[in-house]
Design a protein around this nucleic acid. Structure first.
Length: 471
RNA sequence: GUGGCUAUAGUUCAAUGGUAGAACACUGGUCUGUGGCACCAGACACGAGGGUUCAAUUCCCUCUAGCCACCCCA
């Protein structure tokens, strides 16, 4: 009963709202007042300008190359999902859910969120599209923006891009290893130094056992913990391990280590993952304190940290307090054998990784890596006068169809102007078409390096350019 | 969410309680059919709101944003 009433009320309310809106249209002055200042991008958001695109091109190219070499296929998800998807997948007690989600109510009153991460969507899609009927493992990758309402900082934005790849449907440790190897190769081929942190946090069974042990230990040390950790004690004990507070780190030194509490199956799995990595001589760092911030992980977890030897100051670390430059993760991942079941699918093991592209670009810039040149024009088409301009446009189109890399400045008239632009574009040749050439049926071909130019029969220009440019 | 620093042109930076300047970049000219050089000219800025003051870009407060650190993560 009360439900119906409520609906009626909200309907009425909506009507009133609409009515108010209509009234408000009148004072147009208000609208102008609002637009007095130029709109700015929202906090933590960013335009990616043309000058930055070379980094993105590089990352996208490299990402797709690696992932396709290993048989992963692209999948794209909506940016907006039901809020509950992420709450169920990522975990209620995590920071992502508690304070970092872009959540709101849509017009129909549904709770929706901009996606904070991709794995939950992968799992959802696997179930939605019955991918359990495909040959397993199903190998998928994605690349696109994620959103977290966090306070912006170096390498941290509210909209950032992640590249992730996931293998679903099989438990074999070789898949864990493969994901890690792909991650490792991605950075290696970019030329970035990283350090790979690996741990196993077991399955639900052995983790339960371990948590008991951990809590027992920490309860005896409670007095020495920071305030946050005292809260973690009740909420998310695993997170106690990677607290950065000095006194807490001291406590965690002697804490029981999860590897000692893994069940036979988990231990075995972890050992085999490491064996695969050893065989391929992938360097890694066993890190018993590594626990990840998302609840869905089981067994293998790993993170990518910027490696040693990041240039900056060559000084040997100076004092210990000095080199406290935040250690941001460039990426991470692991196994999530319970997630799909958690979202209502059949029990399905899976493993994956995701990498933060903005942070990687930051490191590429820091390391001063050489960027492959973006597509640069070889030929500039210059024109003088109205008729030649028309002819030049047609020529431009012909050259384009012939596959030449060309440039123009048809909106300019002076030849000097155009040559200046051609010079800035660093083209090899400039074609000059004026009234004189037009009537003669010729065109000027100017070599921009030497400044030599020759008159060429207009009909032979394509042949000539091909000869010169294609060796 | 907490703390510190910052906010002047497209960019990097100056100066000043009384009208804001450079370099680079941009547009145009010297040179109406010839680039890389030079010279000349031009356009463009005090983040927003409030307060103190005869007067605020400057001093004070609030807000907003950026950077940095924490939290956490990519």
């Amino acid at each position: 009963m009360p439900k119906i009433k409520k609906k009626n009320i909200s309907k009425k309310y909506k009507k009133i709202k609409v009515a108010i809106k209509k009234i408000k249209i009148e004072p147009a002055a208000k609208v102008f007042k609002v637009s007095k200042t130029t709109p700015q991008v929202l906090r933590g958001f960013k335009d990616i300008l043309p000058g930055e695109q070379k980094y993105w091109d590089l990352l996208r190219t490299k990402a797709e190359q690696i992932v396709q070499d290993f048989g992963y296929e692209r999948i794209d998800f909506p940016l907006l999902e039901e809020t509950s998807l992420f709450i169920r997948a990522v975990g209620k007690e995590t920071d992502i859910i508690e304070k970092e989600m872009f959540s709101f109510e849509d017009r129909s009153g549904d709770q929706v969120s901009l996606r904070p991460e991709g794995t939950a969507q992968v799992a959802r899609a696997y179930i939605n599209h019955g991918m359990l009927n495909l040959p397993q493992p199903v190998k998928l990758y994605y690349l696109g923006p994620m959103f977290r309402y966090d306070r912006p900082q170096s390498g941290r934005y509210r909209q950032f891009n992640q590249f992730g790849f996931e293998a679903l449907g099989e438990m074999h440790p070789v898949l864990d290893a493969q994901i890690i190897i792909m991650t490792y190769n991605f950075f290696k081929e970019l030329g970035l130094k990283i350090s790979l942190q690996i741990n196993s946090i077991g399955c639900l069974n052995c983790r339960k056992e371990y948590k008991v042990q951990l809590l027992n230990y920490y309860k005896t040390q409670k007095a020495d913990l920071c305030e946050d950790c005292k809260i973690r004690l009740g909420k998310n004990p695993l997170r106690l391990l990677d607290c950065k507070e000095e006194k807490c780190q001291a406590v965690s030194e002697d804490a029981p280590q999860i590897v000692d509490w893994l069940c036979e199956d988990c231990k075995n799995h972890f050992v085999r993952v490491l064996e695969f990595l050893d065989d391929l001589e992938i360097p890694y760092n066993l890190n018993s304190r590594l626990v990840r911030g998302l609840d869905y992980y089981t067994k293998t977890v790993f993170e990518v940290w910027p490696g040693p030897g990041t240039p900056r100051e060559a000084g040997q670390g100076e004092t210990e307090g000095e080199e406290k430059k935040a250690q941001i993760a460039l990426g991470g991942g692991g196994r999530y054998d319970n997630l799909i079941e958690l979202l209502g699918g059949r029990p399905t093991p899976a493993v994956g990784a995701s990498l933060g592209l903005e942070r990687i670009i930051l490191k590429i810039k820091e390391a001063n890596l050489e960027m492959p040149l973006i597509q640069k024009a070889d030929i500039f088409v210059a024109q003088l006068g109205e008729t030649p301009k028309r002819k030049a446009m047609a020529l431009y189109e012909t050259l384009r169809q012939e596959g030449f890399k060309i440039a123009e400045a048809f909106s300019k008239d002076g030849l000097k102007n155009q040559l200046e632009i051609a010079n800035k574009l660093d083209v090899k040749y400039t074609l000059i078409l004026g009234q004189k050439e037009l009537s003669e049926g010729t065109i000027l071909l100017r070599d921009m390096e030497g400044g030599v130019q020759e008159t060429i029969n207009y009909n032979k220009i394509i042949k000539e350019l091909k000869k010169r440019l294609e060796k």
